[in-house]
Nucleic acid binder design. Structure first.
Lengths: 231, 231
DNA sequence: GACGAATTGGACAAGTCCGTCTAAAAATAT
DNA sequence: ATATTTTTAGACGGACTTGTCCAATTCGTC
């Protein structure tokens, strides 16, 4: 029993290195800022959550504001990196277009928009974005700015290969994201999570609607598309 | 010059009634809570914004928490009332389906989701919803709970009359809203507003995608639908 | 084992904010 | 005009936070 630190933090009794402590401060900061907002969070909570003295927080990050910036920066980076990793799994030559897009949408949501980092950013940007726009500037250029156009490029490729009928790939990409995120927003606002089945079901319906709008209207079969891709 | 009260509040020199003061406290509370969040807002700001002494705030609402609840309650009511008013203008017998849906979407957004009350609720629910779920419970049942199904009913009617090909009106309604709100979310997070042209343009594209997904695929003309409705 | 660096716990000043109280001023009703 | 109620400005206590300081302790490394 003597090696018990805190209730909510993983038990890290064997003393951590300097770097490990820096990291647990960031993690604790993320948790507390997420729940309490910037104004509501206090350094003592964060220090306790991180299993560290308050002074160590100040030694490492100097300031509540600077700590917040560090947390936002780290999470922005992680979030964008993960988004691009998932973008790499976009189906370029789908064997079953609908199923492949559903799988991709599920991956994208559960790894990017629905995970802890994604929820953190959405909530914090919503509540602090207007007050500290500089803080989220890098998220904005790297996140929506690049992810959207990268996704648009993948849709354009799919359209060129004959799988889709897309006039404006940028719009299509954004509408795709809007549709697959639809059901997640309201529960996220209340800190709830969708059940796995509802999650899959709503994603299926989103992709189906997307394909009804952007699927090919002429009678071209996917086989034709294969040959078109090779040309 | 002697009749100057505050910089940001409308000049209301002729003394206001009790009710008028109660109202300006609510309005000021909405503004301040919106910008600063619950934890960041302080009563002195609100009193100053309302052109009222701090004590009057306490006399009328007793408590910061109770004032917040009152503000949320009032705005929820206004917001839902306006949403249902706009829902009443849904095109039941469209002469031009696309144009009528665009007009409806523009009305809905600018009067409900995009106006001050709508932005207030979205932001506050995002930042305080997880902490005070009871506060927003009435918004949730009256807002999304009823607006969505009312909109679904209108779409169902449109489908029955032959204008649309809708399998699940509930999903269609939610997807319609997701599409027409798409471009508004990101700017709203940073306190920016879309230009009027971009607003209209994005609404047009949303409705077009919606109609590509839910428009009739067989060759039935809207004239046929008219006769079907009368039967 | 010993040395320098990092960490701890707690005390501390300064500031903020909530909610209460009071006496004077203003508004309202009679 | 007078009595009653509301409003105002300001002071106040208490609680909470931020950020600094410091002496004692622990850690990493030689």
């Amino acid at each position: 029993m003597f090696f018990m630190r805190s209730i909510n933090t993983p038990d890290t009794f064997p003393p951590r290195s300097h770097a490990a402590k820096r990291q647990s401060i960031l993690d604790a900061g993320a948790r507390v800022f997420y729940q309490e907002g910037f104004a509501g969070a206090n350094i003592d909570m964060i220090a306790a959550e991180a299993g560290v003295s308050r002074q160590t927080v100040y030694n490492n990050y100097g300031d509540k504001e600077k700590l917040f910036a560090a947390v936002v920066g780290e999470i922005t980076e992680r979030c964008n990196a993960r988004a691009f990793a998932v973008l790499g799994t976009f189906p370029d030559r789908p064997r079953n277009l609908e199923a492949d897009l559903v799988a991709f949408a599920l991956r994208f949501n559960s790894n990017c928009t629905c995970d802890r980092d994604g929820k953190f950013l959405r909530k914090l940007i919503q509540s602090e974005g207007a007050r500290h726009p500089e803080l989220f500037a890098s998220w904005r250029t790297e996140g929506p700015g690049k992810v959207w156009s990268a996704l648009a490029a993948r849709f354009a490729r799919l359209a060129f290969a004959g799988f889709l009928d897309v006039d404006d790939p940028d719009i299509a990409a954004r509408q795709f994201l809007a549709l697959i995120n639809m059901e997640l927003q309201l529960p996220a606002m209340f800190g709830e999570t969708l059940s796995e089945e509802d999650f899959v079901l709503s994603t299926r319906r989103a992709v189906r609607t997307f394909l009804r709008a952007y699927g090919r209207r002429d009678g071209l079969a996917p086989e034709m598309a294969e040959t078109a891709l090779q040309a």
